[in-house]
Amino acid sequence: MSGAAPLSPEAIFRANGGQLRMGEALAAGISRYQLYQLRDKGLIEAISRGLYRLSDLPPISNPDLVAVASRYPKAVLCLVSALAWHGITTQIPHQVHIAVARQARLPEMDYPPVQGYRFSAAAFEKGIENHSVDDTPIRIYSPEKTLADCFKFRNKIGMEVALEALQLYRERFKTKPAIILQYAKLCRVEQIMRPYLEAGL
């Protein structure tokens, strides 16, 4: 008896949630020629360099985050991008801000533009929330961890951004000063943050 017929390239995409990176497609048995055929026929579309999805899927709500999370699954959304996710900034991120471990290479993408930051092991691993955007897993720092990170990187993103985020956090979340201070200690900004926290208690 002969075995089951191999899946078509389109069926392989559907079996993998409709989205594949180039390397995943090749490993699944789709040749580069077949991949480009699918693209040229309009059956798949390139979300970003090396990332493809079926064209008939519902539109992606946040293609930039999906592209970055798919390319760098271990990275964590941080700073202004995390503030925007949590709704505690009026800034519009012009880059996707992501954190990587200190020994990791800084991320590079043609599109969307990314800004990478190296975090120490302890600071990188703490305060991560797991979310999903269009069925793509994405790691994001919690509001409290993000506030501490913003004070730590205040010279890069601006102290006014950090202070605005703290104010909006107080208005929109149940404030957790003890948890914020734990992250402030971790990020070595406790002495800087404490006066602003105590002023709002």
Rank of each mutant, 00 (worst) to 15 (best):
L54S: 14
A99V: 08
Y141H: 11
K145F: 06
L65A: 10
E160F: 06
L201M: 13
E164I: 08
P143E: 11
Q182W: 03
I180W: 00
I180G: 00
Q95R: 14
H94M: 13
L197A: 00
V80Q: 08
D56S: 02
A69E: 07
M22R: 15
H86I: 05
K176S: 06
S132T: 07
L26G: 00
L43A: 12
E108P: 05
D135I: 02
P113A: 05
V68N: 09
F153H: 14
Y117P: 07
E190T: 01
R21L: 13
Y72D: 01
L166P: 00
A25Y: 03
K185E: 06
F153V: 08
R105T: 14
I47V: 11
V161E: 09
A75Q: 03
F124P: 03
N62M: 11
S48K: 03
Q191T: 12
H131P: 01
L163R: 13
R105P: 07
L147P: 06
I138W: 06
S31Q: 06
S70Q: 12
Q167P: 02
T90A: 14
Q191F: 09
I179E: 11
V96Q: 07
A101D: 12
M1S: 14
F153R: 03
I192H: 01
V161F: 04
Q34K: 08
K176Y: 01
E24Q: 15
A4G: 11
E125P: 06
R172A: 05
E129G: 02
A5H: 13
G158Q: 09
P107G: 05
G200C: 09
Y141I: 02
A28M: 02
V114C: 00
S132M: 12
M22G: 11
L7G: 06
N130C: 09
D40H: 13
P107S: 04
D134T: 06
A5M: 12
Y33G: 12
Y111V: 03
K152M: 12
F173G: 02
I98L: 15
M159R: 13
L35N: 05
Q115Y: 13
L197K: 02
Y117W: 14
Y169T: 08
H94V: 14
E190A: 02
R21A: 11
K185Y: 01
I179T: 09
I60F: 13
R21S: 09
A148W: 00
V189F: 03
S2Q: 14
R71G: 00
Y183L: 04
A162Q: 10
G23W: 06
G116H: 07
H131W: 15
M1A: 14
V80W: 04
H131V: 09
I98A: 12
L54Q: 15
Y183V: 00
L20R: 08
L181I: 02
A104E: 14
P6W: 00
H97Y: 15
E144I: 03
L35E: 02
F151S: 07
A184R: 00
I92Q: 08
L168I: 14
V76R: 05
C150D: 05
K145E: 01
D56P: 03
G42F: 05
M109H: 03
E24G: 01
P143C: 15
E198K: 03
Q191W: 11
K74Q: 13
P59C: 07
S120Y: 09
E160L: 07
L57R: 14
H97A: 10
D40W: 09
A27C: 01
M22H: 15
E125C: 06
G127T: 01
A4F: 05
P107V: 04
A148V: 11
S120C: 03
A5R: 13
A104T: 10
Y36I: 11
L79N: 06
P59F: 05
